[in-house]
Design a protein around this nucleic acid. Sequence first.
DNA 1: TCCAAACCCTTGGATGTCCTAGTATATTGC
DNA 2: GCAATATACTAGGACATCCAAGGGTTTGGA
Lengths: 168, 168
Amino acid sequence: MGNPLPRDPIADAQRNWEQHGWGDVAAPMAAITAIMRTQQILLARIEGVLKPFGLTFARYELLALLSFARSGALPMNKASALLQVHPTSVTNAVDRLQDAGLVVRSPHPTDGRTTLIELTAEGRTLAKSATAALNSEVFGQSGFANQDVDQLIRILGKFRRNAGDFAD
Amino acid sequence: MGNPLPRDPIADAQRNWEQHGWGDVAAPMAAITAIMRTQQILLARIEGVLKPFGLTFARYELLALLSFARSGALPMNKASALLQVHPTSVTNAVDRLQDAGLVVRSPHPTDGRTTLIELTAEGRTLAKSATAALNSEVFGQSGFANQDVDQLIRILGKFRRNAGDFAD
DNA sequence: TCCAAACCCTTGGATGTCCTAGTATATTGC
DNA sequence: GCAATATACTAGGACATCCAAGGGTTTGGA
């Protein structure tokens, strides 16, 4: 989508901020912008690896989540909470996964409001293959040094807890 | 969109990865997942601050970029390159900003293929106000410690360079 | 017991992102 | 000078995300 720029656009933005008298927030601005851009790069890599499997990242995340549930099934609201996305996003993903024969919707045995999402055999197999691909092609070659990975986990974990993601 | 979970879902995922024999990539997986989630949180905060201005983050970024250009104008392809998004995304943003009277499209003086995007007076004023709001309500209260901000800038800067974002 | 409040999922609408053409204009090479 | 190639922008389509609303189910307090 583009060739390398001659200079880091985020570092330029940080300088702009400083020159405009916002030096006190220039660094956090740069860090946040860098997070946004890094997410974009990583998402593109992930989607690229998943495409041959007919999966998007959103659908993969749901499949992976289900594959780690003992029973291979979860209520939709649980999935929404664990994936930390809006319930309508789960509805959307389940619709498409169901069309692809990878999951099935079934009624909750005791709560008529709740719908269970259940992995099919096909879904479980595909989740395994896709995970193997992601592990070798993305996570195994993330481009982050081991120490940096630890720093990221620590810093972002602290941030997410402060943001109210989890109590722990 | 949800209450705090009892436990960190990403730490759980990391444990799952380790238990399935993928210990060698569990940490990068967790770091990458944390980046995705952090981006989601930050984007929501930013959008919340911009909403009263009638702006989204995508539109704000374009306005801010223009406001830093000496002439207040940029070719669309330059904006696409600097913002590191697809040209069609810029077309989309410009359409809406133009409808809102914040920018104007004008022909390039020497290259008939190129369209210049130009800030209107209104656009420049709104960019200033929106930037002030973001500085005080998001960047000024990022929730990252100063040292962590430096770490993020360093780690993600290295990553982005490796990913081919810029030569520097 | 019974109805209001809470909860669960889905539909419809607005945005944004990317990809794949398709049209128009510049540049290059013969 | 002209055809072939490259570049710039836009139209249409596929996906994902969120919000607002609506219909069905449970729960809990009067």
